[in-house]
Computed example of a mutant assay.
Amino acid sequence: MKKLSWFDKLIFFLNSLLAIALIVAYFLPYIPPKSYPLISVLTLGVPILIIANLVFFLYWLLRMKRQMVLSLLIMIIGFGFASKFYKWPFTGEDGAGQYSIMNYNVRMFNKSVWTEEENIPEKINAIIDEADPDILTIEEYYKNEYLEKKYPFKFIKYRSERSSFGQAIFSKFPLIGKTSLDFNVDDFTGDNNNAIFTDVIIEEDTIRLYNIHFQSLKVTEDIQEVDNFKDKQESKKVVKNISSGFVRQQNQAEKVYQSIRESAYPVIISGDFNNTAFSHTYKHVRNDRFQDAFVKKGAGFSSTYNLNYFPLRIDFHLLDTVFEINSYERIKVPYSDHYPILTTFSFKN
């Protein structure tokens, strides 16, 4: 440190702070948000922390300073974390699988007029037609007669008997036993989030399919409200609201996990987790049992949520190990605040 200029000493001080923050973030998926709700918010910043430590490493490397070892060790230790954030393009020869599943949070097909672009329902229908998935799961679903006619089998769970808003599962294969976990009946959740599941008969096999929509953290709305965190009091309020959302997600994830454990069939999970692959929510549901389709066959950052230049992957396909994941694609179209994801898979012999 003595040989460093005052500027380099400042850089290394910042480097050390962000390295420590990344180490803490490595442990957060294993810590229930109920225990430390405020610090759980740090998991949202993991992509930035990874990039920052990479930049620091390159800075010290170019200057041939031994301080590069700090960020290098941190990144080596967290190599598994980085693979959930960025994947080098897959070069295998598997091709498409026998079956396909798409997930899409459609933001009510623009029923709330969040964008002035016209004909959003028709454009979304066209994207789905082009992909032509065997199974389609939708969050923030609003009644769509075209899709309801296109797919012979469906499970649509509206928020209430008089509502046309909810979640949906569409399938080319028969569905048996349609169940809603009804998050909204519990005090700790909001009315807009839920998990539904059904058993899908694919030829001679039966699988259990979940469509999950966990509690929203409302990051975009809160950031806009406080004008990029210029107001300290409002900033504290935002962090508190987000940490409260983490706690609600934990309750919901525990309910989903218990349901998954009771399944007698192989499971596929599809949905909008409203949280990243670095969160306790993701860790608890995946539970080292499921394969993440992006981690297996994805490429690049594959952000699934449109938050300017911030890479945020919060929509997932998690498949049991009896399945072979053959391909994964994020379809970047501007018809919702989410992008659809498409996975093809096969049954292992």
Results as ranks from 00 to 15, higher is better:
77 I>C: 01
131 A>D: 09
333 V>L: 09
326 N>G: 07
349 N>R: 14
301 F>L: 15
89 P>D: 02
123 K>G: 02
157 K>I: 02
62 L>R: 14
79 F>V: 03
314 I>P: 14
151 Y>F: 04
240 K>C: 08
236 K>S: 09
63 R>H: 15
282 Y>V: 11
14 L>F: 05
43 T>M: 01
335 Y>I: 04
22 L>I: 00
210 Y>D: 11
2 K>S: 06
125 N>V: 06
11 I>D: 01
269 I>E: 02
316 F>D: 06
189 T>V: 06
174 P>D: 09
131 A>P: 13
259 S>Y: 07
185 V>D: 08
159 R>M: 12
69 V>S: 09
98 Q>D: 14
241 N>T: 12
206 T>C: 04
304 T>Y: 02
6 W>H: 14
342 L>R: 05
93 E>K: 13
92 G>L: 03
222 D>M: 10
88 W>L: 13
301 F>R: 07
3 K>P: 02
196 I>C: 04
4 L>W: 05
273 F>N: 01
133 P>A: 01
172 K>M: 12
339 Y>T: 03
64 M>D: 15
313 R>N: 08
155 F>H: 10
283 K>E: 00
338 H>L: 00
290 F>R: 15
317 H>A: 05
215 Q>M: 08
149 K>T: 10
266 P>A: 11
122 E>K: 04
64 M>L: 15
15 N>E: 08
330 R>Y: 03
127 I>A: 09
129 D>E: 13
87 K>Q: 15
292 D>Y: 08
79 F>I: 03
6 W>K: 10
30 Y>G: 00
273 F>T: 07
172 K>H: 13
310 F>A: 04
38 L>A: 06
49 L>R: 01
107 R>Y: 14
67 Q>S: 06
269 I>C: 04
206 T>M: 11
342 L>I: 05
30 Y>R: 13
100 S>E: 06
199 D>C: 01
74 I>E: 00
265 Y>W: 12
217 L>C: 10
313 R>M: 03
165 F>Q: 10
123 K>E: 09
306 N>A: 14
255 K>D: 07
104 Y>K: 05
134 D>N: 12
55 V>L: 13
33 P>T: 07
8 D>Q: 09
126 A>K: 12
175 L>H: 05
64 M>Q: 15
303 S>M: 10
221 E>M: 11
268 I>P: 07
185 V>H: 11
248 R>K: 15
270 S>Y: 06
109 F>V: 08
314 I>N: 05
126 A>P: 04
24 V>Y: 00
299 A>G: 13
49 L>I: 00
169 I>H: 11
90 F>M: 10
67 Q>W: 03
127 I>Y: 05
17 L>Y: 11
121 P>L: 02
201 I>H: 14
262 E>Y: 03
339 Y>W: 04
46 V>G: 02
241 N>I: 04
15 N>F: 00
151 Y>S: 09
332 K>R: 10
189 T>Q: 12
313 R>H: 08
235 S>C: 07
109 F>T: 05
92 G>T: 07
137 T>W: 05
121 P>N: 07
167 Q>G: 09
99 Y>P: 07
136 L>Y: 01
76 I>S: 00
271 G>A: 02
219 V>T: 07
204 E>C: 11
47 P>V: 00
320 D>N: 11
117 E>M: 07
150 K>N: 09
230 K>V: 02
288 D>S: 14
88 W>H: 12
247 V>P: 03
81 F>A: 01
84 K>A: 08
250 Q>C: 06
342 L>K: 02
276 T>A: 02
37 P>K: 10
217 L>R: 06
